[in-house]
Design a protein around this nucleic acid. Structure first.
Lengths: 199, 199
DNA sequence: GTCTATATATTGATAGAC
DNA sequence: GTCTATCAATATATAGAC
């Protein structure tokens, strides 16, 4: 995984105060949830007064949207970068390993991305849902390719796609750094996902 | 699955007003999350004033605890009832099918059970965590038995236990009734889980 | 662009009548 | 056991000085 596609340091956010707010919001949302997080808490983590937050973002929801949008795009990019060609088996293993490791390595933002969707406005949710469909399609296409060339047996393609995605996504629910190396977890899950579909 | 062990109609809660509060709270917590749910909303769903809630429960958190405790016990009971003996493969398939179908059929309460843990008080969380460990042990033991008799190949027992649990638990995140029959989903996931570990 | 101070709304929970 | 009325705390967001 390249350093660029895995970059989640929010260096593109300017000025630095806005970046501190994003980082503070991610930590707060992941720890306590969107609704339980106060703007005072976010501002405090960024080292400023509650009022200063509104110079950079018009609402708490907008902060969540920026995080969710960029996080979803980062996850999609990781998947696409991981598709290195080769047999469907190789490709599936690469996708699952990368997607799983991403959810472990970036478990804080991944938690916000996967479990705070219902706090988004309907318009913002729709925008994020487009990216989620693209993520799902990446997995489904590889499974379909494996069925096509006979290397996979998948009686229920949508259901199995969802199951493979579930495996990786649920990592954001339980992962903490003390639970092991993200890449090792990625390899384990790549193996398990491959076994689920191989002929 | 017997009607008794799958019963989640809260008939044991008396009087009826308290039962209406529990049911209203489950729907509200699942729809909006614990923090975003107001006591007014819960009372309104139960057809009473906000003040009447406190006659039956001392706090909003206590309502969540009652739901979480009973929900966890119901999930554990479903797992234990599903262990009908036989080969490790038969037992694993039975456990995964039942546990998955339960999360689909009772996706509303399952969502509260799985995703509102951090809203519990430390004491209440500790009580629920005991049940969660028992649930995990049920799966782990069957996998260990399969390794023992040579029918399963599981290089990482804790990691694979977590992966099997993830598959079922994540159902509570995405399932809605229009996404298919709970029992059919259970059978699909039983098959996928079995393939993950079979030699 | 940050601050202090505050407007305005809403929250969880309580008091007291019936 | 339910109600109306309300308290006290806290929330998001804004006003205006610097």
């Amino acid at each position: 995984m390249s350093a660029v596609t895995d970059s989640l340091d929010w260096d593109h956010v300017e000025p630095a105060a806005a970046r501190r707010l994003i980082r503070g919001a991610i930590d707060a949302f992941a720890e306590r949830g969107f609704q339980a997080t106060t703007t005072r808490d976010i501002a405090s983590r960024a080292g400023m007064s509650p009022a200063a937050l509104y110079v950079h973002y018009p609402s708490k929801e907008r902060l969540l949207f920026e995080i969710s949008l960029y996080g979803h795009n980062a996850a999609l990019e990781v998947l696409r970068s991981a598709d290195q060609g080769g047999t469907p088996a190789d490709r599936l293993r690469g996708l699952v390993a990368a997607f799983t490791a991403w959810h472990a390595r970036h478990h804080t933002i991944a938690h916000v991305v996967q479990y705070e969707l219902n706090a988004l406005s309907p318009e913002h949710l729709a925008e994020v849902a487009t990216i989620r469909r693209a993520i799902s399609t990446e997995i489904e296409q590889v499974l379909a390719d494996g069925v096509q060339d006979g290397s996979f047996a998948v009686p229920d393609l949508p259901g199995t796609t969802l199951a493979v995605l579930s495996l990786s996504i649920d990592v954001a629910r339980w992962y903490t750094p003390h639970r092991g190396d993200p890449d090792a977890l990625g390899k384990l899950y790549a193996d398990l996902a491959h076994r689920m579909v191989q002929t």
